[in-house]
């Protein structure tokens, strides 16, 4: 979308906490190559210093600055204003599907608790006294793990997922994507426990393959494909155990 002919953007920012809130409006000067995070930072530094938001690296690595921008979950540090501005307006809200702490900062506890519930921790088979495991990059399992491994846990997929909004117990795309990468890691020793965890109520079988996660993942990962792999893995394990 071309940049509108105006030197200011009208920005609606959600202000509030877990008890509720409303939108505040700001006029922010436009800059070349300006990102949505630049806009939020300008508001905090020049218009309202009480605005709370979260960021760290500003280069798309830490996954902490995700917000809803014009209704779509995005990493704000890598989202240029001129790509998302509509009629010279921006609406910035906290991520969907997560409780708000204050303003644009969400409580990520449940997101990471679900990561743990999905057995997202690596548990190695070897001790540090043993040699490093030799794994060919061409191995099919390693390739499957590689395809899922670049997740930065920004929770954009979690905010995009309708199943999370309907079923708060659903583990969500990021946790299941992590589980898939570990299920394909031959050095991990908890494949059985993890498969049980992700086959239970609220696990991979709850996914409707709507692909909101894959559509909005800023790293272009495909958690839907990872979850489909987990479903297949769970079904195969069931029939093998008969």
């Amino acid at each position: 979308m071309p940049m509108p002919n105006s030197d200011h953007i009208k920005v609606k920012v959600w202000r509030g906490d877990a008890g509720g809130g409303s939108f505040a409006e700001f006029e922010v000067p436009q800059q070349p190559a300006q990102t949505v995070l630049d806009v939020v930072t300008w508001i905090q530094r020049h218009a309202d210093s009480t605005l709370s938001y979260r960021f760290a690296c500003r280069v798309g690595m830490c996954g902490s600055c995700a917000m809803m921008v014009n209704g779509i979950p995005r990493w704000t540090c890598r989202t240029h204003v001129n790509k998302v501005v509509q009629d010279n307006r921006l609406t910035v809200e906290p991520l969907r599907n997560l409780p708000v702490i204050k303003d644009l900062a969400c409580d990520m506890s449940e997101f990471f608790d679900k990561w743990k519930r999905a057995e997202g921790q690596f548990s190695g088979t070897n001790t540090r006294a043993q040699a490093v495991a030799a794994i060919s990059p061409a191995e099919p399992a390693r390739r499957a793990a590689n395809a899922a491994i670049e997740c930065i846990n920004c929770a954009i997929c979690y905010a995009a997922c309708d199943v999370v909004s309907w079923n708060p117990g659903y583990l969500g795309p990021a946790a299941l994507n992590r589980a898939w990468s570990l299920q394909n890691d031959s050095r991990d020793r908890r494949h059985g426990e993890r498969l049980r965890a992700i086959s239970a109520d609220g696990g991979c079988l709850s996914c409707h393959s709507q692909q909101g996660c894959a559509s909005y993942c800023p790293n272009e990962l495909n958690p839907t494909a990872s979850i489909a792999g987990l479903k297949k893995m769970a079904a195969s394990a069931f029939f093998r155990s008969r």
């Binding site: 086959s199 239970a200 109520d201 696990g203 709850s206 479903k231 079904a235 069931f238």
Partner: peptide
């Protein structure tokens, strides 16, 4: 396990 059985029954 009931979730997995229901899932498989629906697919089959």
């Amino acid at each position: 396990m009931i979730e997995l059985r229901l899932y498989l029954a629906q697919r089959i």
